[in-house]
Write a protein that binds this DNA or RNA. Structure first.
Length: 591
DNA sequence: AGGTTATAAT
């Protein structure tokens, strides 16, 4: 064995005096083993008593060796941790992706308050708020808000940024959460519910409160809030933030600019996204990735490619995310050759190691273009273990090209890999349905029932005058339910008189044809469109966000509706945008 | 002594 000072069998002859304040003891510390040996030295020399050293050990455990248990143990054995140490362990727990550990951070914080020997300081609260934000604990977050005021940190810039972030993150999560809590039984009913401006109001109120009490959200606040806004697609709120930045002379640099580009694009306003992008004083790889991803999501492959080349001309080397963007753009447009060439360029010229996401794009690209065997080959030969996402992309392609044999094989793999994920069952069922094999559809459904797996409920949002309305299944609490019902009836009639015939292949129920046709009429995106049509002026474009992929029947219907009602309808589904106008869709029916 | 932020395939 190499006899470094970390060899535990070696005897040490440290001088008894100034216990080795190595200036950078952690620089030579590379593995968990190194760390434990270094820790042992600190214990031996007594240097572990130094709170700074202990905190360093804790941080190193958590962030370099990802050993939270060890970090916690180091903290626990401290007889009297000072505030610095508390802050360190709180931050470590808060920054995990594990909800239990985030909750533990909150409990530990409460223990810190009860203990009473140390008081939280301004460095404590950002971590605690981060834990609330990530674990979506609004109630605790509000209590902590109170404490912040009580302890007098409500004017600290860092604290405020994290407070705002906490409110918005909790609100968004709550929104997502409510979808899963709804007890959705079947898909043959409709529902509407007025939604919940709570979360938005919460964020806006907080902003307004801040302004009136001279506590202004700063640059970081805006940067933190925008991704949450992008996720729910709340365009009005996003615009408000943009305006706020302008009015308050907050500089829109590459970082805030990237967040704005992404927000506008995810809220359906690609033109605004481009406008922001073009006026930025500086663009880095992330900014370019954002605009390339934006074009990809909107199905504008050509623009994505143009900007990819512009990035190179501007002297910015594309990063891995830029390649994910360009590959997904190729995939949405069916540009197989271009996609292949970007992939090999990434590996051979730029020297980036392809990640599972890149393989995912390639499988999607090849599969949807009909090269099913090549796609499967790629999965079998790639150096990374394929995950459920990859197999799902291939299964989707099997459905698209009605390849039952490969589809069944892939589905089997998927069900082993992720047995409780409804996605693979639904995809397999759709494959059988597209072949008209209703018996097999029923079999899959029965199996799901037996395993207590339910299809994720479809859900759509539409923002009208700054308020988000959400529509899902089995819920009729919307105040305009009657009018919406009437509008749906009218739409259905006009659709039929314009030659529309329901495409019932993707309806998941094994019921009779009439029942399936009725179910289609009440898909959440159609309800959202109906509500949009009766709630806005003619010509007003309708922007809708959907949690799942749009089905073929809705796609065909919305094309016609855009023609009949002369409306632009923009739908963001789980994967991309569809812009319906004059009877056709921007995806050119390839998605 | 220490705390915040943007991009990501299905």
């Amino acid at each position: 064995m190499n006899s470094t000072i970390y060899n535990p069998n070696r005897t040490f002859n440290f001088s008894p005096q100034p216990p080795l304040i190595l200036s950078k003891p952690f620089t030579s510390c590379k593995t968990p083993r190194d760390l434990k040996q270094l820790h042992a030295i600190f214990i031996k020399t007594g240097q572990i008593q130094d709170p700074l050293t202990a905190a360093e050990v804790i941080k190193f455990c958590a962030f370099s060796s990802r050993d939270i248990d060890y970090a916690r143990a180091v903290f626990r054995q401290m007889p009297e941790p000072n505030c610095f140490c508390w802050n360190t362990i709180l931050r470590v727990l808060a920054e995990t992706n594990d909800e239990h550990l985030q909750s533990e951070a909150l409990m530990l914080f409460s223990a810190m308050l009860c203990d009473g020997r140390v008081k939280p300081n301004r460095f404590t609260f950002p971590s605690v708020l981060k834990a609330c934000a990530r674990a979506s604990r609004l109630r605790e977050g509000k209590q902590i808000h109170g404490l912040i005021v009580k302890f007098g940190f409500h004017e600290d810039e860092f604290v405020i940024s994290n407070l705002v972030r906490m409110y918005v993150m909790c609100a968004v999560m709550e929104d997502a959460y409510s979808l899963f809590c709804k007890n959705v039984v079947d898909f043959d009913g409709s529902c509407q519910m007025e939604l919940d401006k709570r979360k938005q109001d919460e964020a806006i109120n907080l902003f307004q409160e801040m302004q009136s009490s001279n506590i202004d959200p700063n640059y970081v606040t805006l940067v933190s809030v925008l991704p949450a806004i992008a996720r729910i697609g709340a365009l009005e709120l996003g615009k408000w933030i943009h305006l706020y930045a302008g009015k308050n002379k907050i500089e829109i640099d590459d970082v805030l600019g990237s967040a704005l580009v992404d927000m506008y694009s995810k809220c359906g306003s690609i033109d605004e996204a481009l406008q922001v992008f073009e006026t930025l004083p500086k663009r880095n790889a992330i900014t370019w990735s954002a605009i390339i991803g934006a074009f990809a999501m909107h199905g504008r492959a050509e623009d994505a490619i143009i900007h990819f080349h512009l990035m190179g001309k501007a002297g910015v080397t594309p990063n891995d995310v830029a390649y994910i963007g360009i590959l997904s753009a190729c995939s949405h447009a069916g540009l197989v050759e271009e996609g292949r060439s970007f992939f090999s360029h990434m590996v051979k010229v730029v020297g980036l190691q392809p990640r599972i996401e890149h393989y995912g794009c390639m499988v999607d690209l090849l599969g949807r273009a009909g090269h099913l065997e090549e796609a499967e080959e790629l999965i079998r030969n790639m150096p990374i273990e394929p995950d459920d996402v990859i197999w799902k992309a291939l299964l989707g392609a099997c459905k698209m090209h009605k390849n039952l044999k490969m589809g069944e094989r892939v589905a089997e793999t998927l069900m082993e890999l992720a047995p409780h994920d409804s996605g693979s069952y639904v995809a397999l069922s759709n494959l059988y349905a597209s072949l008209g094999n209703w018996e097999a559809v029923a079999r899959v459904r029965l199996k799901m029932k037996g395993m207590d797996i339910r299809k994720d409920p479809g859900c759509s949002w539409i923002e009208i005058h700054g308020i988000i309305h959400e529509f899902l299944v089995e819920d009729d609490s919307h105040s305009k339910a009657k009018e919406i019902q009437a509008m749906l009836g009218e739409m259905s009639m006009k659709l039929r008189s314009n030659g529309y015939r329901p495409n019932t292949l993707e309806v998941f129920l094994n019921t009779d044809e009439q029942e399936r046709a009725r179910a289609l009429q009440y898909h959440s995106e159609k309800i959202a469109v109906a509500f949009g049509l009766i709630s806005t002026a003619p010509q007003h474009p309708l922007k809708i966000v959907k949690n799942l992929r749009i089905c073929e029947d809705c796609h065909a219907s919305l094309k016609l509706i855009s023609l009949i009602y002369k409306r632009q309808i923009i739908v963001r589904d789980r994967k991309r945008f569809h812009q319906f106008e004059h009877g056709s869709c921007s995806c050119m029916d390839y998605w």
